[in-house]
């Protein structure tokens, strides 16, 4: 495996653990109230943002290594 993928996986797995912990914590604590449409929208935006970034970096890494 190219070292570029090692850094990618570290970033989005370890970073993802922090991210998921943060999302779960704010929901469990009641700071993000999923019954409110505004809060629900922002939680979804956070998750979409995470996967969006992961996708962009994956494409970038593929292009860097293989093009």
């Amino acid at each position: 495996m190219h070292v570029g993928w090692l850094t990618y996986l570290y970033q989005f797995i370890v970073g993802g653990i922090f991210f998921a912990a943060g999302v779960i914590y704010v929901i469990k604590s009641g700071s993000a109230n999923l019954k409110l449409s505004e809060d629900r929208k922002w939680v979804i935006a956070l998750i979409v943002g995470y996967f969006g970034l992961a996708t962009v970096f994956a494409v970038w890494t593929i292009l860097a290594i293989h093009s």
Partner: peptide
């Protein structure tokens, strides 16, 4: 982005 949830909420 990883630490943004804690700031946002």
């Amino acid at each position: 982005w990883f630490m943004i949830p804690l700031f946002m909420f």
